Amino acid sequence: MRVLLTGGSGFIAAHCVDYLLQGNHSVVFTVRSHDKGKRILSNHPNVSQNKLSYVIVEDIAKEDAFEEAVKSDPPFEAVLHTASPFHFKATDPKKDLLDPATIGTTGILKAIKKNAPTVKHVAITSSFASIINPNGHPEVYNEGVWNPITMDESLNGDGSTAYRGSKKLAEVAAWDFVEKEKPNFTISTLCPPTVLGPVVHYLNDLASINTSNELVRDLIQGKMEKGLPPTRTIIWVDVRDLARAHVRAIERPEAAGKRFLITAGSYRNSEVADIIKKNFPDLKSKLPEKYEREPAEDPFKYDNSRSKEVLGIKYMDLEKSITDLVKSLQSVGA
């Protein structure tokens, strides 16, 4: 099928490109500049232009940002919407996080309804941030649980509060759109926690790495000799499993209208450090000699069975994910 992939230069999207091409789909990805578009194309030198190309979308927070991007000949049949900001450094929560996430999501859905009637399914990258309630965990986290955060709390909290709010409010807006507008397409949302695994997109520099992988970059660069920070979110997924989940969400009719918690299970930062020491003895001197091990008992339970049953995901283990990540960081100069 012909697929539009938003946020093409992002960590997750780069892997989505690989799996879409492996599945013999033709892909048009969005980027903010020709420079980024050409860099991604250069990573796939043997793929023809009718199989892989790009369009420019400069600002996803503009209401009409995707008006032209959704038009295609031949027309699109599915959309993967991965474009959304992910960082905890917002100085203006509304401008930096809430608007791009919410307007970007509703904007593309409006554009598809108006200009791309052939699109039958849309898969949207949401987040475990739209599920988790840091103020009181339920008995089990699954797709039926929603973070209770409000717009006011999102605007007046710290950077991580604003981020959690942006993901929850954007996902709610997507489901509300489908319910009210009754478009020709169905949606699925994917809610990953910490996303680890190899970097395949072209990095300008190691400072631009995705937020989830920053810990590993800092570890192997010797920036944590004094010890490890507490594990931010204790469940994780490898980026390749997440990308597979996105592609299968548009390939499998039974994924339509469903929300998915995408996680391989729990982990701790100390496990990550142990894996690096074991597999990269030459990096041992960069890592802290001693570090505290956080309690092995998880503070909450989670249920990832829907992702296994509907999407057929067989999750990768932490050792492979971290080992491949470190190798990829080394390849770009870490």
Rank of each mutant, 00 (worst) to 15 (best):
T82C: 15
N46M: 09
M151F: 10
N156R: 12
G23A: 11
A78D: 13
S84E: 05
L283D: 02
P117D: 06
N115I: 09
I250N: 03
V272F: 01
R248W: 10
L21H: 07
R164I: 14
L52D: 01
T30C: 10
L219C: 00
L329W: 00
L20N: 00
S307G: 13
Y19T: 13
V47L: 02
K308A: 15
S166T: 09
N204F: 08
M1D: 10
E289F: 04
S42L: 01
I12P: 00
K167R: 08
A101M: 11
L21A: 05
T91C: 01
D274F: 05
L311M: 10
F280C: 05
K95W: 00
N156A: 06
D99I: 12
F280A: 03
F88N: 11
D241V: 06
K182A: 06
R232A: 14
R32G: 03
F66C: 06
T6C: 12
H121L: 09
S208E: 13
P281A: 02
L155C: 04
P138G: 11
T233V: 15
G222A: 03
S266P: 06
D35A: 15
D158N: 14
A69F: 12
V31M: 12
V199T: 08
T263I: 08
D18M: 01
A111G: 14
A264M: 11
K167E: 04
D274A: 03
A255L: 07
D64Y: 03
K278N: 04
L52V: 03
H81G: 13
P253R: 10
K278Q: 08
A78I: 10
Y141I: 06
L219M: 06
S130Y: 02
Q22G: 13
P299G: 07
S307E: 03
P45N: 04
H201G: 13
V310A: 09
D298V: 06
L98W: 01
K223I: 03
K226N: 12
D59H: 15
A249Q: 03
L325C: 14
